[in-house]
Nucleic acid binder design. Structure first.
Length: 456
RNA sequence: GGAUAGGUGGCAGAGAAGCUAUGCGUGAGACUGCAGAUCUCAUCUACUUGGGUCCAAAUCCCAACCUAUCCUCCA
């Protein structure tokens, strides 16, 4: 299995630290606003990765942090006249709900930063003991200059970093490139007691405190959006390695590309944020998943209606094929496939740096080939085809979920309609179909088998 | 200015030296009670520019230009 490691910027053979066991951490959001399409992309991708690794037999502990104490949350709470924790709770609940709808259920545990203050303080103390941090009037800062590998992940040298950091300095720190570990309380802000007085953690420290608590000081995979490479992930490396003395924080760093709107990154000032829940008003979760993984994970996705429409077409095509196979009933048929060989081939494609786009291309070609031979598929062959589709779906999750209740009622309606059709009572059968379509339920007759699906 | 990833049809996007795939779109046909789905065929002035290497360059080398992201909070 090959992974493109941001650290070193090259493809590497993946070897877990402990055979069969993978510890994976992916940065979660700051919960101060609605979840947007960018969160969806990153989380859908890592959800696919976690599920794929599990499908290949690994035991994966997938951990994600939730930043629930931060300037943005405090500002938001002030604007709305609420407690910061109310704002954080609200948006965290909404985030979890949306992740659930997107079928992102591979995360073993969401770790909220505010529940790890003891670990955070403990880690800052250790960093200070090792001489990598200092206290000033407004906080505790990491002495970047002392950690000589700083810049390794983002491939910058210390001089460049210092030069670039010399713009706006609002904090009291010794050197512009230093970053804050602990912020001393300003009037009206939430706080925790610490050896440096009342205050709260800086942004970077929560991740290493949480990962150390669950994984120890070194683990396998760290993921996130590529906008986090610098300074966030660089800072994480400095914090943990300065204490652990080990060569790595995470062995493999995987970064996903941004989702742009009209070729530009989403931003508050451009007011071009697209919220995930708004997309889900027009498209199904499976269609959004498809759109997000039908490209190489490290490239920019330009979000558009066209992207969603063509994704929807492709997902419907896959689902219609799957439903046809489910309904197929034929003892005859010369079409034969080697399911194991095809699955091995799909695995080989995924093993090349989680190439979901190529996998989808091959998967659609596989479906197209079966469609061409539809007349020659026996029930035995169909069950192999179903097995392959279900294997791929076990990590892509692009087969629509049907409610059991819906299925039972639809079976009855289709049965009635087919009775009408067999008597050539097309007035009734067309009327039923028209009524169903008015409720976004589409049906398709294939000989004496009828399949159905729900469109948005 | 520095770092990273890129620049291939109307759009998306493969191709890492050998006639530029494929999908979407568009047009026609087959199949079907009709519709849908599926299939077949067709279609689209496409390799950023300028040099170089080579029998041969989208592909390798050099230069330039352009785009996105990071260098300030970000998934």
């Amino acid at each position: 299995m090959i992974i493109h490691n941001t650290l070193g910027q090259k493809d590497e053979d993946f070897k877990p630290m402990h055979p069969g066991r993978i510890n994976m951490f992916v940065c979660g959001p700051t919960v101060y606003d609605h979840s947007h399409i960018g969160h969806a992309r990153t989380n859908i991708f890592f959800d696919v990765i976690a599920k794929y690794l599990r499908a290949r037999g690994y035991s994966v502990f997938y951990l994600q942090n939730i930043t629930d104490i931060d300037d943005k949350i405090i500002n938001r709470a002030a604007e709305e006249g609420k407690e910061y924790s109310e704002v954080a709770d609200h948006y965290f609940e909404e985030y979890k709900e949306i992740m659930g709808k997107l079928r992102i259920d591979s995360i073993n545990y969401y770790a909220r930063a505010s529940l790890y203050i003891d670990e955070i303080i403990g880690q800052i103390k250790k960093i200070m003991e090792h001489g990598y941090a200092y206290e000033t009037a407004d906080g505790v800062y990491f002495n970047v200059r002392k950690f000589s590998d700083y810049g390794e992940l983002s491939n910058q040298n210390m001089d460049q970093i210092r030069e670039n950091a010399r713009g706006v300095i609002k904090e009291e720190k010794k050197s512009p490139e230093d970053f804050v570990l602990w912020k001393k309380m300003k009037p009206g802000e939430p706080f925790w007691e610490s050896p440096w007085g009342k205050g709260r953690p800086g942004w970077h420290i929560e991740d290493t405190a949480i990962t150390e608590a669950y994984f120890g000081s070194e683990y396998d995979i760290h993921g996130g959006g590529n906008d986090l490479i610098f300074p966030h992930h660089e800072a994480e490396i400095a914090q943990m390695r300065s204490v652990s003395g080990k060569r790595y924080l995470a062995r493999y760093w995987i970064h996903t590309g941004m989702v742009n709107i009209n070729k530009e990154k989403m931003s508050k000032s451009l007011k071009n944020f697209i919220q995930t829940k708004d997309i889900l008003k027009s498209y199904k979760p499976e269609e959004l998943r498809f759109a997000m993984i039908n490209s190489n994970y490290n490239t920019v996705i330009d979000y558009s209606t066209q992207l969603m429409e063509s994704s929807k077409d492709a997902v419907e095509r896959i689902n219609i094929f799957y439903n046809k196979m489910k309904e197929l009933n034929s003892t005859e048929g010369s079409y034969n496939i080697d399911a194991e060989e095809i699955i091995n081939h799909f695995n080989a494609v995924m093993d090349k740096n989680f190439d979901t786009r190529s996998l989808i291309r091959e998967f659609l070609a596989f479906i197209s080939d079966a469609n061409k031979n539809m007349e020659n598929i026996s029930s035995a062959a169909a069950s192999k085809l179903i097995h392959i589709v279900e294997y791929v779906d076990s990590f892509l999750n692009i087969i629509y979920r049907k409610q059991n209740q819906e299925s039972n009622i639809m079976d009855i309606i289709i049965d009635i309609r087919n009775h009408a059709r067999s008597r050539k009572d097309y007035a009734i059968s067309d009327y039923i179909r028209k009524k169903l379509e008015e409720n976004n339920i589409y049906i398709e007759d294939n000989g004496n088998k009828t399949i159905w699906w729900i469109k948005n």
